[in-house]
């Protein structure tokens, strides 16, 4: 196995279990309590490594969000064909007629 000199340069990252739980909530991922610590260790390892970015001088450098160097292209506003609804609905986990079925969003007493 090759020696990994890069990992040695990582710094410890102070990620807490509470932060992991918070990020899981933001990410809409149900993370069971007994998995939080393992996940915390793995994420802290990666975050410790990416801390190398701090050492790079970026004074006055513009962020680069994409390598694509052409400006926004506008299409002519012409109607085209749509994908068939019936075929799209075949992939839905639950349907009612030609609609997606979802759990009740509003509580019973929230109606007016």
């Amino acid at each position: 196995m090759r020696s990994v000199t890069l990992a040695a340069m990582s710094e410890a990252h102070p990620l807490t279990p509470k932060e992991v739980a918070h990020v899981a909530k933001l990410a809409r991922l149900a993370v069971p309590g007994d998995r939080v610590e393992a996940l915390r260790g793995q994420l802290a390892g990666v975050l410790g490594h990416v801390a190398k970015l701090k050492a790079i001088d970026v004074e006055g450098v513009e962020p680069m969000t994409t390598p694509f160097d052409q400006s926004n292209r506008l299409d002519p506003d012409e109607p085209g064909t749509c994908l068939p609804i019936q075929e799209l609905l075949k992939n839905a986990p639950a349907v009612e007629g030609r609609y997606l079925a979802v759990p009740k969003v509003l509580a019973e007493d929230a109606g007016g």
Partner: peptide, 14 residues
């Protein structure tokens, strides 16, 4: 600290 900085380093790499 992370995303914004990474995008700047990205330009330097380019």
């Amino acid at each position: 600290a992370y995303y914004g900085r990474a995008l700047k380093v990205r330009r330097r790499i380019k």
